[in-house]
């Protein structure tokens, strides 16, 4: 059974300015021990998906479709069951949470509280064990958040998320605010946890290059939808969707003469989800758009060009049409 399955997930925020359809028909599956990366520019709906998995969206937000954790529908759970599932089945390291630790409590205490709240036993010893597991010496338990560097606080947050031994960890931009060396340390830690504990990881970031090296599979989002998915290395190196192609090209390859003195990016901004154009939402920024794209919004479909490789999918008029 899959650890996580999203079936036609739609999330619409209700605001004074009207409805904001932030996630539109997302299907995604995560198997036990698997690492899946969710990529895309700011505003494409990544954090919304993270919050939707554990029903942490603002009150009044409209959610349709299904979120299955270990086969159980999260949106059909009673409050008691939901509380148990949060932390023990799945935990989230939130984006920008480096400042979310309680400033007036020692980090060890904060981890102990999380353990007591859910699992109870030996909280103090286990808090120290957790800190050690994320590479912080036991003495750090006595420190307050302000005494720690950004990388150390990120480790505390990961320890906190692991407090109840969840099967699934959702990490939302866990390395975005960190230096390259510290980023490499945190990525190595996540890889180790995944390998040693069979943790399943949903890794969210706008940095495609990070995902390619950390995740087996990749899903690229644009304007609330997955527009391409497949094995991460293949998707990064031979993207099928023009959006993924532009994203991948915006990472210079150091040492490659083609990107020397040649910064490349993607012109324009993603569309406002409350005012989506008709047709393909990427058409305005797309360099291979054809007249059909203004009216036709292609759904995610198989992008098999080589026989037997059915693991690539993309949502583009140019993809998958040559199939027999």
């Amino acid at each position: 059974m899959s650890v996580l399955e999203l079936r036609d997930l739609n999330v619409t925020y209700r605001t004074e300015g009207g409805d904001v359809p932030a996630v539109r028909g997302v299907n995604l599956t995560l198997e036990i021990g698997e690492t899946v990366g969710l990529a895309g520019e700011s505003g494409c709906g990544k954090s919304t998906i993270a919050a939707a998995v554990l029903r942490l969206l603002p009150k009044g937000t409209k959610v349709t479709g299904e979120v299955l954790l270990d086969g159980e529908d999260v949106y059909a759970m009673r409050p008691g069951r939901l509380r148990a599932v949060r932390w023990t089945s799945a935990a989230i390291v939130f984006q920008g949470a480096l400042h979310s630790l309680n400033p007036v409590r020692r980090v060890g205490q904060q981890i102990e509280e999380a353990i007591r709240l859910h699992a109870g036993e030996r909280a103090e010893t286990r808090a120290v064990e957790l800190l050690e597991r994320v590479g912080l010496p036991a003495a750090r338990a006595q420190h307050y958040p302000h005494q720690l560097s950004g990388g150390q606080r990120q480790r505390v947050l990961i320890a906190l998320a692991l407090a109840c031994e969840p099967k699934l960890l959702i990490a939302d931009e866990p390395t975005t605010a960190l230096d390259v060396m510290v980023q490499a340390q945190v990525l190595a830690l996540l890889e180790e946890l995944q390998r040693d504990r069979g943790l399943s990881l949903l890794f969210i970031t706008h940095d495609l290059s990070v995902l390619t090296h950390t995740c087996e599979k990749l899903a690229v989002m644009y304007a609330g939808r997955i527009v391409e998915q497949g094995p991460s290395k293949a998707v990064f190196e031979r993207p099928d969707h023009p959006y993924t192609r532009a994203l991948a090209a915006s990472f210079p390859t150091i040492g490659d003469p083609a990107s020397r003195m040649n910064p490349r990016g993607l012109a324009g901004d993603p569309p406002d989800p409350s005012a989506l154009p008709s047709g393909c939402p990427f058409q305005i920024r797309c360099d291979v758009a054809i007249p059909e794209c203004t009216t036709l919004d292609v759904a995610l479909r198989d992008a098999v060009s080589v026989k037997g490789l059915a693991d690539r999918r993309a949502a583009c008029v140019h993809v998958g049409v040559a199939r027999v």
């Binding site: 990472f251 210079p252 910064p263």
Partner: peptide, 13 residues
């Protein structure tokens, strides 16, 4: 976002 960095850098250059 990584996708728009290139444009800003090209502008600076």
């Amino acid at each position: 976002d990584a996708s728009i960095r290139g444009e800003i850098l090209a502008l600076m250059r």
